[in-house]
Design a protein around this nucleic acid. Sequence first.
DNA 1: TAAATAGTGTTGCAAAAGCAACAAAAATAA
DNA 2: TTATTTTTGTTGCTTTTGCAACACTATTTA
Lengths: 213, 213
Amino acid sequence: MAKTSIFNEISFNDQIKLLNDFKARSSTFSKGVTIMSNLRTTRDFNIVKSGIVNIIRFNYNGTRTIIETLEEDDVFGNFSSATSEELYVIADTDAEIISFNYDNIFQRYSKNIDLHYQFNENVVKILANKLQSTNDRIQILTEKTIRNKLLNYFNTLYKRNLSKNITIPFSLTNLADYLSIDRSAMMRELKNLKDEGLINQKGKKIQLLYYIN
Amino acid sequence: MAKTSIFNEISFNDQIKLLNDFKARSSTFSKGVTIMSNLRTTRDFNIVKSGIVNIIRFNYNGTRTIIETLEEDDVFGNFSSATSEELYVIADTDAEIISFNYDNIFQRYSKNIDLHYQFNENVVKILANKLQSTNDRIQILTEKTIRNKLLNYFNTLYKRNLSKNITIPFSLTNLADYLSIDRSAMMRELKNLKDEGLINQKGKKIQLLYYIN
DNA sequence: TAAATAGTGTTGCAAAAGCAACAAAAATAA
DNA sequence: TTATTTTTGTTGCTTTTGCAACACTATTTA
């Protein structure tokens, strides 16, 4: 399933009409600024129009973890991520955000009906996509051993690029966090996998040497 | 966020119209029968019209695990659950299932426009809901210790019912599976929690004795 | 109602994972 | 370019978890 953008099949002019119907407002944020400090309680539907934005969790011990990285036309809202901890939305670069009340999506619009149909289709597809990737993550997290978590994760990267040469899209430290395992234990297991000839690894570059069906 | 049914705010007559537009077909299955054997590859959008249906994963070692239990007006499709293993949909009681091609949702319908708007709204809300509960599950699975997984899980049940007397909605065996931990280790930790006076527990009935903020 | 199956509760032991701590490399900022 | 911070890589030790096995209790099914 290809990734759908929120404005898929919607011309620039139509985007303006749509955002007008939704009574959307636009805000700009400079690098490093906190865009939202309580993501799980927002009633807004938000679209990143430019720049890069991170969804961040602050752990009880003070460390911060990147939950998701968003770029142009990615969306966020209270549906976005884990619920029971405080999630911050932080501008990683200068960024422009468009926001409107979530319920406005569901209004009946007598004009621009096809347009709203298309938008709805995009929303449904984006949510279905997000659901699939959270399900991928659950699949990985339910693996019991670090080795199986790693291999399962490598497999999802393999499937995404159809190449045995994969690059971890974030730091190994964040990978350990994403897999919810201890970093040093993960490094140890990576070493084991190397020693057993299952992978080559140097930093974030990994080559899969085993058979994948 | 209250659970939304797929036919929320749609009268019985309108349901018929809608299903007609979608070229939906209805099938009945008797208890125990396999409704679908490859959930992740289906292109259909499915609605449980009556009965109870389980989504089941068969583990490599032959044990089967209930991923999700569905009842009237619950939906399933390739968006439903984890992707990389084979998922079966099995009738737990006699059941009636309505199915139609997923893409038909997105057709432009010149008649019954309000109706389709409402349906779309329901689909979006259901997906957003599912996304929240998978995110809850991720939250639990990312906890590192069995103790924290249990406590986190208890908290979500507490929040759902706002009562410190909670009942695990499935067997302890399935709970261990849901939390992706060894059953005997879970029992041991439940015993620890009891011994330390944090909970009372007898089978699936649990009373939380600690302070929840 | 009896028999069969599934679920609960417990434990010793082995294996895996986490913690802590440190050195070295890499990336970023001054 | 140098200094500072972050990330990577490694290891000994401790704790937690999983596995295996068994008895006992509930729940289904015949």
